[in-house]
C-alpha cells in the first residue's frame, strides 16, 4: 500500500481507486442489482408500484423455467452456442498457431491486419452482409448451383446454418486473440523437442501445445460462448423465422413492456450460462487464476 502510494502519488492512487470503484459500481453492480430487483417483482401497472402487491416473488422465474417452450429454446441456445464455440476453436486454432509461430516474419503482420479489417465494420452490417451471401438467391447458393453441388437453393437461413456461421464469424477475434497470446509464449524448442523424441504432429499439439495454451483456450471459449449465448443481432438477422434464440425471448418481453418478466429471463440466462461454464471448467480442470493470467 505504501509502495503504491510512493509509486503513484496521492492523486494517482485516488484516481485508480475512483476509476475502479466507479467501473464496478456503475457498470457492473448497479445494472445487476436493478435487473435482479425487477426480476423478483411482479409486473404491475404504475399505480400499484410500491403498493401491497409490489412484493418480492418467484412467480416470474416459475413462468420462465417451467415453460416447455422456454426450456427448449434455452437448451437450443446453449447447444448452438457450444457448437459455435467448437467451430470457432477449430477455425481459430490453426490461424492463431500460425500467427504465433510466424510472429517474427512480415507475413504474420499481414495476416493480423487481414483479420482485424473486417471488424472495423459494425456487427450489424456484417450480419447483413452474411444475410445477402446466404440468402435464397445469394452468392453461396449461386456458386454451389453453378458448380452442380446442389440443384436448387439451400435454405441456409431457416436451416440455422446462417446463425451458426454468422456467430462464428462475428466473435472470431475473441477466440483468436487469447489463443494467440497463449501460443505466442510457447517455447518453439518444446515443439522441436517433442518432434525430435518421435511425436507425430497431432501428438505434439495434444501433449505439448494444447496444455500450454489451455488458459487462453479456456478464455477464448468462455468469452465466445458467452457472447454467442447472449447475442441478439445475429440471430435476429440470420436466424430462421421458426427458431428463436433465448435473447430474442428476453427482447420480446422488454418489447411488450414487461420489464419484470424480461429481467427474470435475462437473470436466468446469466445464471444458467455461469453454471454451464463452471461445469465445463471443472471438467477441463481449468482454474479461474489460469484464465486471468
Amino acid at each position: 500500500m505504501s509502495s503504491a502510494l510512493t509509486r503513484f502519488g496521492r492523486l494517482g492512487l485516488a484516481y485508480i481507486f475512483t476509476a475502479t470503484g466507479l467501473w464496478l459500481l456503475v457498470l457492473m453492480l448497479l445494472p445487476l442489482i436493478v435487473t435482479i430487483d425487477y426480476a423478483f417483482r411482479p409486473f404491475l401497472p404504475p399505480v400499484d408500484w410500491g403498493g401491497p402487491n409490489d412484493r418480492y416473488t418467484f412467480d416470474n422465474f416459475a413462468v420462465v423455467l417451467l415453460n416447455k417452450f422456454n426450456q427448449t429454446i434455452f437448451l437450443k441456445t446453449i447447444w448452438a452456442s457450444v457448437l459455435v464455440t467448437v467451430l470457432s476453436l477449430a477455425a481459430c486454432y490453426p490461424v492463431a498457431y500460425t500467427l504465433a509461430r510466424e510472429k517474427r516474419s512480415g507475413r504474420a503482420r499481414w495476416l493480423a491486419i487481414a483479420l482485424i479489417i473486417p471488424f472495423l465494420v459494425n456487427e450489424l452490417l456484417r450480419a447483413f452482409a452474411w444475410q445477402l451471401l446466404l440468402s435464397y438467391k445469394g452468392l453461396f447458393n449461386q456458386v454451389l448451383m453453378s458448380l452442380g453441388f446442389i440443384s436448387e437453393p439451400f435454405d441456409f437461413i431457416n436451416k440455422n446454418v446462417g446463425v451458426i456461421v454468422g456467430l462464428v464469424y462475428t466473435y472470431l477475434l475473441f477466440m483468436i486473440l487469447p489463443l494467440y497470446t497463449a501460443l505466442e509464449s510457447l517455447d518453439p524448442n518444446l515443439v522441436d523437442a517433442a518432434r525430435d523424441l518421435g511425436a507425430p504432429w497431432w501428438r505434439i499439439h495434444w501433449d505439448v501445445v494444447l496444455p500450454h495454451a489451455k488458459p487462453g483456450l479456456a478464455n477464448g471459449c468462455i468469452v465466445t460462448f458467452m457472447l454467442a449465448a447472449g447475442s441478439f443481432a445475429v440471430p435476429q438477422l440470420l436466424g430462421g423465422t421458426g427458431s428463436l434464440w433465448f435473447t430474442q425471448l428476453i427482447y420480446n418481453q422488454f418489447n411488450a413492456i414487461n420489464w419484470n418478466m424480461g429481467a427474470a429471463y435475462a437473470f436466468c440466462l446469466v445464471i444458467l450460462c455461469l453454471v454451464f461454464i463452471v461445469i465445463v471448467m471443472w471438467l477441463l480442470r481449468v482454474r479461474l487464476s489460469d484464465i486471468a493470467r
Partner: peptide, 20 residues
C-alpha cells in the same frame, strides 16, 4: 528422414523440458 523418425536425439541449449 524427418526428425521424429531419425535415430538421433537432440539436447537443446535451453534443454526444452516439458514444464507441465
Amino acid at each position: 528422414i524427418v526428425p521424429n523418425r531419425r535415430p538421433t536425439a537432440l539436447i537443446f541449449q535451453n534443454l526444452a523440458l516439458f514444464p507441465l
